[in-house]
Design a protein around this nucleic acid. Structure first.
Lengths: 144, 144
DNA sequence: CAGCTTTATGCAATAATATTGCATGGACAA
DNA sequence: TTGTCCATGCAATATTATTGCATAAAGCTG
């Protein structure tokens, strides 16, 4: 993990569509050396995967919600159930355990309010460990 | 944007490393037809870009912060300045204008507390429009 | 429904790109 | 120095993406 490797991941993080030859030129390496570095970065888990970024509007997932969740018990056992449910839920794009007022922060990408209602039903209303949750909706995306 | 297109974007959203031939097989198309669909999806902006997902730990950006920001004035003019600064700041990975108690929600990916301090300095302390901000730190990533 | 236009499809040829073997040279330790 | 290890570049090769073309399907219009 030297300077060149960091250079490579910085470039691929922004745009993984570049050809190996173009990438090699940007980092001043021959295509073969560059490729072998990329392969190693993938093999060792530095590059976890590459994904396509899809326009949410097109897929009809234009409604973004931010949910703070307060939990009753913080034992590993009690939380594991919720965590698993969060991972199952396709609209939950991010979920963090956080310090401060609340215990969890979720980012949801939803089709509409009806889907929001359904998700809440599944995640919270049936879980006694969830004491309370507060939702804000995203009015404008400044950066993502 | 038919069923096949949706199928394609769903697959590429999870893994953009698949070869065109493999993708074609998964959606029951010939490689050439499949490729032409992918090209169109890119051309029309459905697929915005493809990026490599990098292990944050490796890059030394292991500290995630969630920041809620309260603004004084909500005029477009006053907000534009902050928005631009948010976009400049490399550690700000997401920024949303939201409903509810606060006005903005930020997700920061940081190297350490010192970087957090510096970012706050740059973003908030010099901006009279920022009345208050509250930060939570991520203890564990449940889903991302 | 026939006739027309438009669009998507698959095949095969071609172009572009990724991948590998191999020889060389630099860095480092004994 | 000498030997080992590893990264590098070149050139050959293997994969993969891309395009031209003929055909078929889907819409449209009268």
């Amino acid at each position: 993990m030297d300077k060149i490797d960091r250079n490579i991941v910085t470039i691929l993080q922004k745009n993984a569509d570049v050809t190996n030859a173009a990438l090699a030129e940007q980092v001043n390496l021959s295509p073969s050396s560059c490729l072998r570095r990329v392969q190693r970065l993938k093999r060792t888990g530095v590059i976890k995967k590459t994904v396509a970024i899809i326009d949410d509007k097109v897929l009809g997932r234009n409604l973004i919600a931010v949910v703070e969740v307060d939990l009753d018990r913080h034992g590993a056992q009690a939380q594991a159930v919720l965590h698993e449910r969060l991972r199952q839920e396709i609209s939950v794009t991010q979920a963090y355990g956080i310090t401060g007022e609340s215990d969890c922060l979720l980012i949801l990408k939803l089709a509409d309010m009806d889907e929001y209602r359904q998700v809440c039903e599944r995640l919270f209303n049936h879980d006694k460990n969830v004491i309370r949750f507060r939702t804000s909706f995203v009015m404008n995306v400044i950066q993502s």
